[in-house]
Amino acid sequence: MATRILVVDRNVELCKSLGDFLERHDIEVSTLPNAGLLERCLEHSTPDLVILDHMQPGGEGLTALGNLRASGNEIPVIMLAESADDVDRIIGLEMGADDYIGKPLNLREVLARVRAVLRRAGTARPVSALHESWRVAFGPFALDIRSRMVHHDEQPIMLSDREFELLRIFVNQPMRLFKREQLAELMFGPKDDRMARGLDVLVWRLRQMIEVRPSTPKLIQTIRGHGYIFVPDGEQYVPRPREVVARVMDEQRAR
């Protein structure tokens, strides 16, 4: 049986070129111009994957994604965006997207990413156990996204909403190096003078609750000149060579 994909994008030319290309690789493609119709469409037909335009009118792309995940629908979703910058990408991934691709599209890249997402989805647990995927363990801790609770050896830890959201961002993207500005904007919204300071306080509070020695954190580590990184196994993070070069270049520009 051929793989079936639903492309949700109002750009008719993009849908046609993408559909023609994917169909030459044994992928059956159907299209939908409006994300507001996505849930109704999925009630009648279930494709293997959805490619969803981020910039639907009125933000309907992200709204549709959020509604799918809130209803428990775990169909794989790849988001498309005019600009796949870090903040947009993180927001989309946080809301449950499986991958993100920026426009203009490289059709071969789309094919590769579709195959990669479908491979990951193929190893997922059955639908009857999908709720378990909302519980993520790291060390002696477990974060339950649906109940918005964190447990340490089965004992609950009380976190504020913002502390929980920050930990959720870290846990969902382990070993990702976040700039302070990226995290601050995700947590506090558009830029203002208090963002960075507020983020640092939030990280400090979170460390008090989940680190054995908050003064020498192992889980939420600070990378000087870059930001923060979540290391689930608690090993000391060593920047890759390209990150060292980037830091040196940043320091040179700042002089």
Rank of each mutant, 00 (worst) to 15 (best):
V136N: 06
A2Q: 12
R69V: 01
G72Q: 06
V117R: 01
L80A: 04
F188H: 14
K103L: 14
L42R: 00
L52A: 12
A129L: 15
E94T: 15
D88M: 13
L49K: 04
R125Y: 06
V171C: 04
S133P: 05
L206W: 14
A35D: 03
E185A: 07
R242H: 14
E39I: 09
L38D: 00
P126I: 06
E23W: 13
L111M: 04
R10S: 11
E82L: 13
D88A: 11
A124C: 05
I145V: 12
G59P: 12
R205F: 02
A81T: 13
S133M: 05
H131S: 15
M79C: 08
F188W: 11
P190G: 04
I91K: 11
E243A: 10
P190A: 15
I101N: 10
A84E: 06
L65T: 00
L166E: 03
V7M: 15
G92C: 07
S160M: 11
I5E: 02
P174R: 05
P76E: 12
T31D: 08
V150W: 01
S45I: 04
G198T: 08
D153E: 15
I27N: 00
G234E: 08
S128E: 10
S45D: 02
I223Q: 14
I5S: 02
G92H: 09
